[in-house]
Write a protein that binds this DNA or RNA. Structure first.
Lengths: 211, 211, 211, 211
DNA sequence: TATGAATGAGATTTCATTCAT
DNA sequence: GATGAATGAAATCTCATTCAT
C-alpha cells in the first residue's frame, strides 16, 4: 500500500524475481495465512534473501497491496463482461456466482491475505470495503431492475445486495479456505454453485402471492 | 484452550479479578481486534498486571477459549428455546435472525475474537466450525421440514443452511464489527433484520411455479 | 525524549537497574560515542538483556534524553550558584570556566552523547541550543554590565557571549573528548583553565587606549 | 581513506561523473549531515547508481577523505597567502577570520562531513586534528611574535591558539551549520566577523596595566 | 493473590557492498 | 563506464512468558 506508483522492474530477471515473490506470497498466504506469514518465509519460498524482498516491496503489506490491485483489476474486468450478455436472469446469476467461486479458487492466497489484513489494518479494511461496495452497487442495480418488473416489492435493494454479497464471500471462504462446514455432506462444486444461485434467485425473483 | 479443566477461583476477590479480565478482553477485542490485542493491553484495561493475568489464564488464546465457552453455553440455551414455539415460519425466522443480531451486538468482543482467532489457529477454527455446524444442522432440519410441505423442492438442505448461515454471520460482522458497507444507505437495525429475514424466507418458502 | 513524564521505578531493585543503565550509557558513550553505541552494548555493559533496556527506556535517544535532563538540572543549579557571590570579575570568571571544565570532565559520557545526537537529530539539536541559549544570555548580561562600567565599548554582547561559549565548549571537547590538539605541548588542566580565563577576561575587560 | 593513491579517471566522462559525486556529496552532507547520508542518497543526487559509486570510491568515508584532501589543499594555499602581507595585526586577523568564515560558507558540506566523521571515526579525527594542528601552530607563532613585542606576557601560546581556533570553528559551526544560537539577535555576517576579530585581538594584544 | 522485574526468541528493516552483464 | 540485482550482517524493537517476592 505504500507506493501508489509501482514501476515494473527493468530487466527480465527482475520481473521474474518479482513474479516469484508474488507467487510465493500467494502460496504462503494460502498455506499459513497472511498474519502468520513472515517476510522471511516469503523470501525463502521464492528462493531469495529477505534483503532482496525489500528491493521489491517495502513490507509484507505492500506486497499484499500489489496482489490486491492485481485481483481488483481482474475482477473489475470480469464483472464488466459478466452482466453484458442478454441472458435470462437465472442464468446470468449462476454465471456470476460461478465466476466468483472460480476467482476465489484461483486467488485463494490473496483473498485469505486480504481478509486477514482487513481484520488488522483499518486502511486495508477500507480498501476491501471499497472493492465490495462496487460489487454491491451492481447487485443493487439488478435488484432495482427486477423490482421495476414487479419482483420483490418493498425489499431494500442495497441491504439485500449487501446480504447476498456477504453470503457469497463467506460461503466461499468457509468452503474454500477453511475446509468447509463440519456437516455430514457430499460436497461438490456444482451443488455449491447451485445452492448459492438458488438462494440468490429466489431472494430476488419472487412476487407477492395472490389476493 | 490449554486447560480443559477450568476451576473457578476460590475467593470472591479472585472471581472479581477473573471477571475483570473477561470484561477487559471483550472490550479490547471489540476495539482493537483479537490479533492486535496484547496481554499487556488486556491486563492494563483490567487494572491488573500482566503477571496477574497469567495467574488466571495460560495465554491470550486460553482466555478467548473461556469466552467462547461462555458464548457457546448461552447460544445453546437460546437455540433450544427458539425453535420450540409453534409460530408461523416467517415469524420464527425473523425472531431467530433478530436473536443472532442481538447476540452479536452483545458479544461483539468475543465474536470478533473468535473469528479472528479462527483465521490464525486451526484449533480455534475447529471450535468455531463445530458451533456453526450445530446451528446449520438445525437450519437444515427446518428446510427438510419445509420440503415435506412442498417448498423448495430439490435444493440441498445442508448447503442451503450453510449459505444462509454464512450470510447471517458475515452480514453481522460487516455491519457490526467493520462499520458497514460503504454504500449510500440509511441503515437501521430494523431494516437489516427485515432484509436478512426476507432473503432467508424466500430462499426456502417458494414453490415451483406453473402447471 | 519520548516521555515528558518519567516515573521513577517502584522498587530499589528497579532503581538500581535504572542507575546501571545510566551509568553504562555514560561509559559506553564516552568510550565509543553515542552514534556507535548500540542498545545491545549498553545493556551488556549494564549486565542486563536488551529487552530489559526497553522496560526502562523507549530507545537509545530516550535514555540520552534522561541523561540530558539530569545534566541540565545540575548545570542550572550550578549556574545559579556561580554568579551570586560578590567576587572580582576575573576570579568569578575563572571559577565559572573551572566549573564548566569540571562538569565536562564528570559528564563526559552525556556530553559526547548530546553533541553527537545534536548532529543527527534536529530535535536534540534544539534541546541543546536551548540549554546553550540560557548560558549565553547570562554571559551577555555580564558583558553589558561591564560595558556600563566603561569596558569593551561597541562590542555586541550576545555575539561575544556566543563566541566565548563556543570556545569553552569546543576547547573542552577537543581536550577532554578527542584527546587534545596535536601540538607539542605540556598540557595541564591548570594551564588550560588559565588560558580560557585569560582569553575571556581580556576579550571583555579592556578599555579603549588613550588619545 | 582507503586508497592512498587516487588516480584521476582517464576519460572526460569519468571525470565528470567523479565531479558529480563530489558535488552531490557536498550537497547531501550539507543538507542531511554526513552520518545520516547514505551511499544511495549520494548516488541518487548525482543521478548515478550506487554500483557506479563504488567504481569511484571504496566507501562513503573514502569520498569524504577525497573532499577533505581538496579542502586541505585549498586552505593551505590560503593560509600561506594570508600571513604574508605586511598589514597591521588587527587587519590581518580580521582578514584571517573572514577568510575562515568564507571558506566555511563555501565548504559547508565537507566541513559538516569532516566534523561528524571525526566524532565517529578515530582515523578521521586524527586527520582533522592534523589539519587544525597546522593552523594552531601558525597562530601560536603569531602570539609568540606579539609577546616579543610586549603583548600578553605569560600566556601559553599553544593553548591560547588552540582556544581561539576552537572558538572560530565552533562559532562557525553553530551559526552556519546549526542555524545559530537561539538568542534574540539581529545577526549579520559583518557583526559576526567583528565579534570574532575583537575577541581574538583583545585576547592577544593587551599589555599589563599600571606600573 | 498480586506484581515488578527480567528475558528469550523472533520479526522488521536498513545499508554497505559485491558481481555479472 | 554503468548498473540492476542480490545479499550478509546487524540494529531496533515487541511480546509472551517466567520467577522471586
Amino acid at each position: 500500500m505504500a507506493s501508489p506508483v509501482r514501476p515494473a522492474k527493468a530487466t527480465p530477471k527482475g520481473r521474474a524475481t518479482d513474479a516469484a515473490f508474488r507467487h510465493s506470497a500467494r502460496t504462503i498466504f494460502a498455506r499459513d495465512g497472511y498474519l502468520s506469514a513472515t517476510v522471511g518465509d516469503i523470501a525463502a519460498e521464492a528462493g531469495k534473501s529477505e534483503a532482496t524482498f525489500y528491493n521489491y516491496y517495502t513490507s509484507k503489506a505492500d506486497l499484499l497491496g500489489a496482489l490486491a490491485e492485481d485481483f481488483h483489476a481482474e475482477t473489475t474486468r470480469f464483472a464488466q463482461r459478466s452482466y453484458r450478455t442478454g441472458r435470462a436472469p437465472q442464468e446470468a446469476q449462476r454465471e456470476a456466482v460461478a465466476g466468483f467461486w472460480q476467482t476465489y479458487a484461483e486467488r485463494r492466497g490473496e483473498l485469505i491475505g486480504i481478509f486477514q489484513a482487513a481484520m488488522l489494518d483499518a486502511e486495508f479494511a477500507g480498501h476491501w470495503l471499497d472493492i465490495r461496495a462496487r460489487a454491491i452497487r451492481n447487485i443493487a442495480r439488478e435488484i432495482r431492475h427486477a423490482q421495476h418488473r414487479g419482483y420483490c416489492p418493498g425489499v431494500d435493494p442495497e441491504l439485500t445486495a449487501s446480504a447476498l454479497s456477504a453470503m457469497l464471500e463467506q460461503f466461499c471462504y468457509v468452503w474454500q479456505a477453511q475446509g468447509g462446514d463440519r456437516i455430514e455432506h457430499d460436497f461438490t462444486v456444482e451443488r455449491a454453485i447451485d445452492t448459492l444461485s438458488s438462494v440468490w434467485f429466489h431472494a430476488v425473483y419472487w412476487k407477492p402471492s395472490g389476493p
